[in-house]
Write a protein that binds this DNA or RNA. Structure first.
Length: 156
DNA sequence: GCCAACGTTGGC
DNA sequence: GCCAACGTTGGC
């Protein structure tokens, strides 16, 4: 099993939204590196940190689980969607998504400042200079360290 | 709202 | 294939 960090702007989709809905397609990924990660390396059953970006404060809000991979992202074909991409066609889809399932909202939100200040988390892609990836792999150690900071009840 | 960092586009 | 211009991300 692999471990991931997935960013979402809470104004668009937050951990509370996922908690209410239970499951959700993770649509709108429009970055090739992030897409390649989900296409090539993400598997059903993987666990991901749910990260709130562009938030006050930004940070990790909880955990979700990957329940399905390699789904064609339908928002790319929708001219009314903010994720519309005229270069993607149903015959030759460019963007894919995964489905995730709510696992847990952390009892304690883990702000970015705390991740930045934590010695053993300094090699996460998240805190490396200039990194803006919206989906990135993380190590089991990073995952467990952040679970601890969030006072998670999950034991992966 | 600012702006640094990075990705993408398109002319050549 | 290079690279300048432009667009986007995302913390602050």
């Amino acid at each position: 099993m692999k471990f991931w960090l997935m960013k979402s702007e809470p104004g668009a989709f937050s951990i509370d939204d996922l908690s209410k809905e239970g499951f959700s397609g993770w649509d709108g990924v429009r970055n090739y590196q992030a897409r390649n990660y989900i296409r090539d390396d993400m598997n059903e059953g993987d666990l991901a940190l749910f990260y709130h970006s562009n938030a006050n404060p930004s940070g990790v809000a909880g955990i979700c689980r990957i329940t399905e991979t390699d789904i064609v992202d339908p928002t790319a074909f929708d001219p009314d969607s903010q994720y519309f991409d005229p270069k993607s066609s149903e015959e030759n889809p460019r963007w894919i998504m995964v489905e995730v399932e709510f696992v847990e909202k952390f009892p304690r939100f883990v702000p970015l400042s705390e991740i930045k200040g934590h010695e053993s988390l300094s090699d996460m892609k998240l805190v490396q200079k200039g990194s803006r990836l919206s989906i990135m792999p993380i190590t089991k150690k990073h995952f467990q360290t952040i679970l601890k900071l969030g006072k998670s009840k999950i034991k992966p």
